[in-house]
């Protein structure tokens, strides 16, 4: 177990290292960063000056190692546009995205797990069909369209919820639904198929043969098993949501890292962009690691071996 854990941890570190390299290369090879930072209409001399100031004239690997070295000391660079440390800028934006991601995940789980369980307990009935349609619709609906639909319905037509900003909890409701809905089909399908399997299993038959109350059979001896892969999937989906929140955040003007990324891309603020790429990739890698750990923790057969 310990060997497995340390292997898995090393793997995660390696993945983050390689992705950081890719993030760096993406930003530096997709055009001339100095020209982009100097802005349109800058003279050749200005660009040269920028290049020298920021060290873009050094070989790439030197720049990369320099960047990694600074990251390891907690320095993510400096935003040229905002004239602030990237670390400080991220510290303002990350909590918003984290809140959004967790709310979205909560919404997704609260919708998809009960639906999946009921669908599995009553296969091929009306509720099962309904669940299937929720899943199919969820897969066919682009998230920005769903967000706009919500905005129109609750923000414009009924005027129930604020449509932009992130000042209060009310601001998070629609974005969370829009972002979370995208994860529901996968979670629901996995819950449904897991429950279908486990309800056929021998130990559930034992539980029923010993007269346990129906909810105990379903929750303690059924869902307890079906939920194990769902937990891993949920962690991975949270990672995807962090990466995909850019669309939702721009629509609702939610000032999280997605919104920041979009703004920074338009301002060619490359230090911020590469820091965001790194943070999101690292978050995803850590979440998948967490998913594996949770998997092991939830299954005694893996935990004690």
């Amino acid at each position: 177990m310990l060997v497995y854990l340390s292997k898995r941890f090393l793997m995660t570190m390696l993945v983050i290292a390689v992705t950081s390299g890719i993030a760096f290369l993406l930003v530096h090879l997709s055009g001339d960063p100095a020209a982009a930072m100097a802005g349109e209409g800058a003279s050749e001399a200005d660009i040269e000056a920028v290049r020298a100031t920021y060290g873009f004239d050094r070989p790439l690997y030197v720049q990369y190692l320099d960047w990694v070295g600074r990251i390891l000391t907690g320095d993510l660079g400096r935003s040229t546009y905002l004239r602030a440390d990237v670390t400080d800028v991220l510290a303002r934006h990350v909590p918003v995205t984290a809140t959004l991601g967790l709310c979205a995940l909560t919404f997704a789980l609260a919708l998809s797990i009960p639906l999946g369980v009921i669908a599995a307990l009553r296969p091929n009935t009306l509720i099962d069909r309904f669940a299937l349609w929720v899943a199919v619709a969820g897969q066919a609906l682009p998230s920005f369209l769903f967000a706009l639909g919500l905005m129109y319905l609750f923000g414009v037509y009924f005027r129930l919820l604020p449509i932009s900003g992130n000042e209060t909890w009310w601001h998070f409701i629609m974005p969370s639904i829009a972002l979370g809905y995208y994860a529901t089909p996968a979670i629901m399908r996995l819950t449904r198929s897991g429950m279908l399997d486990v309800m056929q299993s021998d130990h559930v038959r034992t539980a029923r043969a010993y007269g346990l109350a129906p909810w105990r059979v379903v929750v303690r001896h059924g869902l307890r098993h079906a939920i194990i892969p769902v937990v891993s999937l949920a962690a991975v989906q949270l990672g995807f949501m962090l990466g995909g929140s850019i669309v939702i955040e721009t629509i609702f003007s939610l000032k999280g890292i997605g919104y920041l990324a979009w703004e920074s891309i338009q301002r060619a603020d490359i230090e911020v962009i590469q820091a965001i790429l790194l943070v999101i990739a690292a978050a995803y890698a850590v979440l998948t690691l967490l998913a594996d750990l949770l998997n092991a923790a939830l299954d005694p057969r893996i935990r004690i071996s």
């Binding site: 130990h203 043969a209 010993y210 001896h221 307890r224 299954d299």
Partner: peptide
């Protein structure tokens, strides 16, 4: 009460 065929799977592993 009932005793089942396969004791490897009849008990809840969790």
């Amino acid at each position: 009460a009932m005793i089942f065929q396969d004791p490897m799977t009849a008990l809840d592993p969790c």
